[in-house]
């Protein structure tokens, strides 16, 4: 085909800006470090070994745990929501869905900052509770893991609802009728037909929530107030503060491997035509 040359600009672009940077990171993660933090091209396993120290493994564990908790909450809250929207009339459906995506269009930093305001000691939640006499002194709502989880759920829940909704909306109403015709009750229809058929959407949703959740550093930074160190914070710190790029690269590589593993596991449950975002 004559059109092959059309792919050349993109191929070059991807090579330089997608692939090369990752290669650089991979190389750095095995490079030694000079006393002043400079990169010396001598193979070492030092940075990966360092990550195995309990203090860093703890960060890894906390990151995974928080990401998993937020993913599960997003699923539990988002699935029923996707179902409710998919059952609405066609006109309503579009509007409801757009309303769900709308907050995504406002700035991510501003959204997270809004929660800082909400959860502050002098914030409206505490003020309301104080004035109602339910509490005597402000609750510590901000700067803990709870606030971080909340921030993750708030920011990422549209990524769960979107793919689940798109699968549910495409599902043939006939199949549900057929199941009812064969004697299934509403609960059985859900468990045996709707849920299994929506699995591709659920898997997409899980990936799309888990991934940013496990790698974020803004949410933990703003809402965790430096109390909750996650993988993302660690990487940011190594690159911008500690200036240990080799170690930062190693952590990034580990995070990528984790995500690849998570995606391979989940893609097993995902059929060919699975419901992504598009």
């Amino acid at each position: 085909m004559k059109k092959k040359w059309l792919s050349i600009p993109y191929a070059l672009w991807a090579l330089i800006f997608s692939i090369a940077p990752l290669v650089i990171i991979a190389v750095y993660s095995f490079c030694s470090r000079s006393p002043y933090g400079k990169i010396i091209y001598k193979f070492t396993f030092e940075h990966y070994r360092k990550f195995m120290e309990p203090i860093y493994l703890n960060v890894l564990w906390r990151s995974l745990l928080l990401a998993m908790i937020s993913t599960v909450v997003c699923l539990l809250v988002g699935y029923p929501m996707a179902m409710i929207i998919s059952k609405a009339s066609l006109k309503k459906r579009n509007i409801l869905m757009m309303l769900f995506v709308l907050p995504l269009w406002t700035n991510f930093l501003l959204r997270t900052y809004a929660w800082m305001v909400l959860l502050r000691d002098q914030g409206p939640i505490n003020q309301l509770l104080l004035s109602l006499g339910i509490i005597d002194e402000p609750l510590k709502l901000l700067y803990n893991t709870g606030a971080v989880t909340l921030g993750m759920v708030y920011n990422f829940i549209p990524f769960m609802v979107l793919p689940v909704y798109s699968v549910l909306a495409k599902m043939d109403e006939c199949l549900i009728e057929a199941a009812k015709d064969l004697g299934a009750t509403s609960t059985q229809v859900f468990l045996k037909i709707t849920l299994p058929l929506s699995m591709p959407g659920v898997v997409s949703g899980i990936i799309m929530v888990f991934m940013p959740a496990v790698s974020t550093f803004v949410i933990s930074d703003l809402l965790g107030g430096g109390q909750t160190i996650l993988l993302g914070n660690l990487i940011q710190n190594q690159f911008l503060v500690a200036r240990n790029w080799q170690f930062g690269s190693a952590i990034s590589m580990i995070m990528m491997v984790l995500i690849v593993i998570a995606m391979t596991i989940s893609s097993k449950y995902k059929s060919e035509d699975g419901g992504g975002l598009w």
Binding site: C174, A179, D181, L182, I193, L197
Partner: peptide, 15 residues
């Protein structure tokens, strides 16, 4: 599901 009637759907509706 409580009727002793079953249906063969248009386009079959197989799961």
């Amino acid at each position: 599901f409580k009727r002793q009637i079953n249906t063969v759907f248009q386009k079959y509706a197989l799961f």
